[in-house]
């Protein structure tokens, strides 16, 4: 009975949603938008302050944001304050997990021979891939969030693949707080040098080079370290359990 009522409510909701959306969007086909009228054109052209021009990969210099990956330039340059808020939310959730799982020791999952052998070989490669992803976040797909999570996955594999690792989480906390503090210090440096919080105050270089885009690579490395240590902390806290004798 309850399921029937729920189904009915869902169908009513689906009817209203589809009729409401059908007016604005080309709903049943691949949606298409008029290119000229969308807001992110300014982000794509590096033209928010109104001094942009044609962008050529490898030639354009001293752009507004200077990152080849436009998503990165939005996440850590144009909307960087938003990102600061997001990693604060992630920090709060990690704090909540740590507080609620407070007492306890590491779960003794019996890891088999295959996992132990493979973890030794695969975990360093995963760590290296994570570092590559967040240092090249302004050139290739990826960035701090997937790179940090990949580092956390490598940590997790190492954590369960070896018997010798004790649950000593001090370095993680240290990295996390240092990265967060450095992010805010970079923002304050933008405030004092260029006049607004988290502004891109370094020279942005040539579009498409590794050393370019001002503070974007620095911020993304910090975000990657912070997200990686936070997610590792969540995972390590999560795998603790009460001592069952």
């Amino acid at each position: 009975m309850k399921k029937l009522v729920s189904l009915f409510l869902i169908l009513v909701l689906a009817f209203f949603l589809t009729t409401a959306l059908d007016q604005g969007l080309d709903f049943w086909h691949s949606p298409s938008q008029l290119d000229a009228f969308r807001m992110s054109n300014a982000f794509v052209q590096n033209d928010v302050l109104g001094e942009g021009g044609a962008l050529v990969f490898g030639e354009s210099k001293n752009l507004e944001s200077g990152s080849a990956n436009i998503v990165t330039s939005i996440v850590v340059d144009y909307r960087s304050f938003d990102t600061l808020g997001e990693i604060t939310v992630l920090f709060l959730s990690a704090l909540g997990v740590g507080l609620l799982m407070g007492s306890g020791v590491r779960t003794t999952l019996r890891s088999g021979f295959i996992l132990k052998t493979a973890a030794k070989m695969v975990a360093p490669l995963m760590l290296l891939t994570g570092i590559y992803i967040f240092t090249h976040g302004h050139l290739t797909p990826g960035g701090g969030f997937p790179g940090g999570s990949m580092m956390a996955t490598a940590f997790l594999l190492h954590y369960f693949g070896s018997d010798t690792v004790k649950s000593n989480l001090k370095p993680l906390k240290w990295i996390e707080s240092t990265a967060g503090a450095l992010y805010i210090l970079l923002g304050l440096a933008g405030l004092f040098v260029a006049g607004s919080f988290l502004q891109n105050f370094l020279p942005t270089g040539t579009l498409g080079h590794l050393v370019s885009a001002g503070i974007i690579p620095l911020v993304y490395v910090l975000v990657g370290l912070k997200v990686g240590s936070e997610v590792s902390g969540i995972v390590a806290d999560f795998s603790k359990t009460e001592v069952v004798s």
């Binding site: 938008q33 969308r38 998503v71």
Partner: peptide, 17 residues
Amino acid sequence: DPLPQAMVLTAIVIGFG
């Protein structure tokens, strides 16, 4: 449009937390 992608990129990590 890169703007929704930037929104969702952070939302996924928050969802995990």
